[in-house]
């Protein structure tokens, strides 16, 4: 048991081990982001569709499933952030004196601003949870509607009211742009760190990474835009 514990603590202290954990937690969040998007796009299928979906999430497994998901996601987010901040600090310490003539050969802009795009997404997550989950500073929790004779939370009207205030929509779209930048490097990077990329698969993984990031951006920004432009009301 002590040998097992020792090997794992060596792994967690190593650069490669920390990166593998960042990749694994990132993978979980990548999957979540797509699921979250698909669910949200139900808004275009009408009020009943998204309200029923919201009610399903709230009540699945007698309301336990949503908490399992929340705790799991929160753990992933925490591990991802704590380790990346630690890794970034180590990276800064590894080169104290900067070059007089700074030059970048092929590193993408997205890859160079991962910590910034990541921290902006973090700020967005906090705002997003206060806005639509905890309903701080608004009365969205009082919005109700009825489906099949049951009174449920009116997600549809909450989204429309939330995005009708343009500064909120603007911040959402900006944060999604940052997420898109983060994913365009992160998705393919994840495969490289987990040792799953090969010279045969790498060009494909890079394309998937960019297409995935684009889908997340277009899908998510379409909702506040649709509300602001009056397509969804």
């Amino acid at each position: 048991m002590s040998a097992l514990f020792k090997s794992l603590s060596v792994f967690l202290a190593s650069s490669v081990g920390k990166k593998i954990l960042v990749a694994l937690t990132g993978a979980a969040l990548v999957v979540f982001v797509l699921g979250h998007l698909i669910g949200n796009l139900l808004i275009f299928a009408g009020a009943d569709a998204i309200n029923e979906y919201g009610h399903f999430l709230q009540t699945a497994g007698h309301g336990a499933l949503v908490w399992v998901a929340r705790i799991g996601l929160l753990t992933c987010v925490l591990i991802h952030i704590v380790l990346t901040i630690k890794l970034t600090k180590e990276n800064r310490a590894a080169r104290e004196d900067r070059y007089g003539y700074s030059h970048t050969i092929q590193a993408t802009k997205s890859s160079r601003f991962m910590i910034f795009s990541g921290l902006i997404v973090l700020a967005f997550i906090v705002y997003h949870l206060l806005h639509f989950t905890l309903h701080i500073g608004n009365n969205y929790s009082t919005l109700t509607t009825s489906i099949h004779g049951e009174t449920v939370h009116d997600v549809y009207r909450m989204v429309i009211q939330g995005f009708s205030w343009w500064p909120a929509s603007a911040f959402y779209i900006f944060a999604i742009l940052m997420l898109c930048s983060h994913l365009s490097h992160g998705v393919s990077s994840m495969f490289q760190t987990l040792g799953l990329a090969t010279p045969r698969t790498w060009p494909l993984l890079q394309k998937i990474s960019i297409i995935y990031a684009a889908i997340i951006f277009i899908g998510n920004s379409s909702i506040p835009l649709a509300v602001l432009l009056g397509f969804v009301k």
């Binding site: 202290a13 190593s14 650069s15 920390k18 990166k19 890794l87 180590e90 990276n91 310490a93 590894a94 080169r95 970048t104 050969i105 092929q106 590193a107 993408t108 890859s111 160079r112 991962m114 490097h185 393919s188 990077s189 490289q192 760190t193």
Partner: peptide, 13 residues
Amino acid sequence: DEAGFGNCTNQFE
């Protein structure tokens, strides 16, 4: 790691 090198961020410079 002990020598104080940084961590790879897959930028391939």
